[in-house]
Nucleic acid binder design. Structure first.
Lengths: 145, 145
DNA sequence: CACGTGATAGGAATGGTTCTTATCTAGGAG
DNA sequence: CTCCTAGATAAGAACCATTCCTATCACGTG
């Protein structure tokens, strides 16, 4: 997955490809390639401001909403109330392990196919689009308290 | 699971058992018994006000936070930003199907044990406390748009 | 290369949640 | 049963992440 692929996808959709938006996507891609935790809107803004100092939080939120609608970005919600975002990548799929102490997020590279199957059987009239599985606990550092 | 069990559990913890708190728990229990979707703070407040008209939203939030810390209540977050609460019940365990259109929540009475197992294997140093699995899609009504 | 439409910046507004303060009360001690 | 006090409550103010508003700007179509 490279930035070019994402940008050409965007072109097809007719969504305008401003430099700010390219930078937002680049930041998300970089984070994905590093395997790090998802970013929240403010973190994204701070990163983007390195190149485009004038960028507003509102712009970041609006762009992320647009990308989410387009299926390029996924929004995540954990129990600490924080909202964060990650790139949707073809061929790669993961879930999350969240520390209830420090809020740090780690990826789980496993997907329970049986669960989705069960949901489909239970509610055949539903058009299933997506799913998310999250495990909560305490990381080694937070266990010591 | 009856209200008495919950209340006696609370007594053991030393948490004060005010009538408002009893009513909040009763409302949550009623919802659980009906098998309905989880409630948000405002819905709970409105129900509680039938008996205790003076109850404030703040009281509801504080009580729910206390119950959550005590493991009596679970807080849920879905992608529409809404925050809601449900009773934690022994012997019963479920996950959720959420409509991306209207936000309505339905229970899925199935749990992917393999997923939790995998998380444990992946991160043996983590102390796993809880997990949640959510499927997103469009309900029959919202599919028509 | 000019034009129109959709995007942006900045500041103001919003709304859910939490804090503050004064008052009250549940429940243990006497 | 009555008193006492730590902890709970109500009301309104404060908070803060997110969204709205409006004037301005610029992407990329034609």
């Amino acid at each position: 997955m490279v930035l070019g692929e994402i940008l050409s996808h965007l072109k097809k959709t007719g969504i305008r490809l401003t430099p700010q938006r390219q930078e937002i996507l680049r930041v998300l891609l970089e984070r994905f390639q590093q395997g790090g935790p998802p970013l929240n809107a403010e973190e994204i803004m701070l990163q983007v401001r390195r190149c485009y100092p004038g960028v507003s939080l509102d712009t970041v939120y609006r762009s992320l909403a647009t990308f989410t609608k387009e299926g390029l970005v996924r929004e995540l919600q954990f129990r600490d109330q924080s909202r964060c975002f990650e790139l949707v990548t073809k061929g790669e799929h993961h879930h999350h392990l969240v520390c209830l102490g420090c809020g740090k997020v780690r990826p789980i590279h496993y997907c329970p196919a049986d669960f989705i199957e069960q949901a489909r059987e239970c509610y055949p009239d539903f058009e299933i689009e997506d799913h998310s599985c999250t495990v909560y606990g305490y990381c080694p550092k937070c266990r010591e308290e």
